[in-house]
Structure formats: structure tokens, C-alpha cells
């Protein structure tokens, strides 16, 4: 009974954060969708292009012609869907440090092991599980 009460409280208090799921890592990939649903590639493209949501183009470049200002700190997204499987892409976005401890790419779905996070972002992942799935769905379409 109290379990239900706590759960209800958690859901009321933290609509998004309480639902953070634990991704199941298998080798160098996360085979299953974080939400149990497939993502939406069109929404994913918008997230990737948005400088304050996905932030991806700060470091990466990609076939998104309308965004003139792209980064060159990281590989281009062109062909990412040919190089990597859906599950491999998912792990690279969720937490690339699992593959390269020194990576500069932020972990988009992790809240642990961070220092001095601004109060307004504390305890929050950079992207929600659904947003991660949208981004994965978009990257998968980028075939060479």
C-alpha cells in the first residue's frame, strides 16, 4: 500500500525525472528502445538541429543545410546510420563515456557523476528518453 502512495507522490512531484529508465547495455549497444516505442525521425532532426535542445551541432556537422553554423570538434553525422546500428547509436547518445572514458561528448541520458550542475538542470538528463529515441530514429536514416 505505501509503495503505491510513494509512487503516486513521485509521479506528482517529478513528472519527467521519476520516469528515468535504466538502459540495458549489451556490449557496445543498447538494443531496446528506452521508451518501448520507436522514435520519430522528423522530430529527431529538429532536436539535432536545435542549438539549445540537442546541442549536437555545437560540436558535430551533419546534412542539415539550413543550419549554417555547425561544429568541427566531432565527426560528421553523414553516414552515421551506415556505420552504426540503432542500438550502437543509442548507447553513444545515452552515455558515450561507456565506450571512451575520455570522450568530450556529453552523456545525454545520465545524471550521475557530474559536478556543479546548474540548479535549473540538476537531476535532469539533457534529453528525455523519448527525445533520445527520436534522435536515434533520425540518425538511423543517415545512410551513405
Amino acid at each position: 500500500m505505501w509503495v503505491l502512495a510513494v509512487l503516486a507522490l513521485a509521479l506528482v512531484g517529478y513528472p519527467a525525472a521519476a520516469q528515468q529508465v535504466t538502459p540495458q547495455i549489451n556490449g557496445d549497444s543498447i538494443p531496446r528502445s528506452l521508451t518501448g516505442q520507436p522514435g520519430d525521425a522528423t522530430r529527431g532532426r529538429v532536436i539535432v538541429a536545435n542549438r539549445s535542445v540537442g546541442l549536437c551541432l555545437l560540436c558535430h556537422s551533419g546534412p542539415i543545410a539550413e543550419e549554417r553554423f555547425q561544429g568541427d570538434l566531432a565527426p560528421s553525422f553523414a553516414g552515421a546510420g551506415s556505420r552504426w546500428s540503432e542500438g550502437q547509436l543509442r548507447l553513444r547518445i545515452v552515455d558515450g563515456s561507456r565506450l571512451n572514458a575520455d570522450t568530450i561528448m556529453p552523456a545525454y541520458y545520465r545524471t550521475q557523476g557530474l559536478q556543479r550542475v546548474a540548479r535549473s538542470f540538476e537531476g535532469k538528463t539533457i534529453l528525455s528518453a523519448a527525445q533520445v529515441e527520436d534522435v536515434v530514429a533520425y540518425l538511423v536514416t543517415l545512410k551513405d
Binding site: G71, I104, I126
Partner: peptide
């Protein structure tokens, strides 16, 4: 020291990646 939600340090940008483009800058 790395810090913030993006987990970056001053050194990552200003030593290791100085001269490279961050969103075109």
C-alpha cells in the same frame, strides 16, 4: 576540472580544441 550538465572543462575547449569551430565560432 569537468563541470556542468555538459561535463566539459575549460581545458577541453581552450587547450584541446582552441581554433576549432563550436557551432561556427
Amino acid at each position: 576540472r569537468r563541470q556542468g550538465q555538459l561535463n566539459l572543462s575549460c581545458a577541453i575547449c581552450h587547450d584541446d580544441n582552441a581554433g576549432r569551430k563550436l557551432a561556427g565560432i
